[in-house]
């Protein structure tokens, strides 16, 4: 699905790159410091960034908004919202997670933690209010509602701790 190639830049951050449909290489460097740089290569030297634009958090967010193509906003870092003692958390399921390949019922999340899976976010379509028979796969993100302790318990189960 993804055309983006991810390369580690030790000591600097991570380089994400892809080739546009017209054959130009472009991408973004995420620095460990949180700074982002967007780069675009010229056609005569596709290895070299001809133009580099530094973006801070707000710039990057504004650019994402302007491009208006975001499918899942929170896919990288789990987000968390808290409303009067009730916590909503976005919990990604990784390859290593024991939840990958199981149904929500198999995981007995509600029984063991008292928290509910409100929705499952997946590339290509999200499911609100999934039933216990809903099968989870790596790459999914669970939206879970519960008490702070209940949420921590879900995270432990999903991470296999």
């Amino acid at each position: 699905m993804s055309r983006i190639k991810e390369t580690s830049l030790p000591g600097v951050g991570v380089q994400y790159e892809f080739t546009t449909s017209k054959g130009r290489r472009m991408g973004v460097v995420h620095h460990h410091s949180g700074r982002r740089e967007m780069f675009l290569c010229s056609p005569d030297d596709p290895d070299s960034a001809a133009l580099t634009v530094g973006l801070d958090d707000e710039d990057a967010f504004a650019l994402g908004e302007a491009l208006d193509v975001l499918q899942i906003v929170e896919s990288v870092s789990p987000a968390k919202y808290e409303v009067e003692g009730l916590v909503f958390e976005w919990i990604p399921i990784t390859e290593e997670s024991p939840a990958s390949g199981k149904t929500i019922g198999d995981m007995r999340l509600r029984t063991l933690t008292g928290s509910s899976v409100v929705a499952v976010l997946r590339q290509g379509g999200s499911t609100p209010a999934p039933g216990p028979e809903f099968g989870l796969i790596a790459g999914d993100t669970l939206v879970v509602a519960g008490t702070p302790d209940g949420i921590d318990a879900v995270i432990d189960l999903v991470d296999g701790r």
Binding site: T7, S8, L9, P10, G11, V12, Q15, E17, R25, G27, V29, E37, F39, C41, P46, D47, S48, A49, T52
Partner: peptide
């Protein structure tokens, strides 16, 4: 490592394709 890291930043080379290789040699 210090001089190279500064050069990569100054010259706008962090997005270049050879940069991961240069950095892994330094590592």
């Amino acid at each position: 490592t210090g001089v190279v890291a500064k050069l990569l930043g100054d010259l706008g080379w962090t997005g270049n394709r050879e940069t991961p290789m240069v950095l892994s040699v330094l590592v």
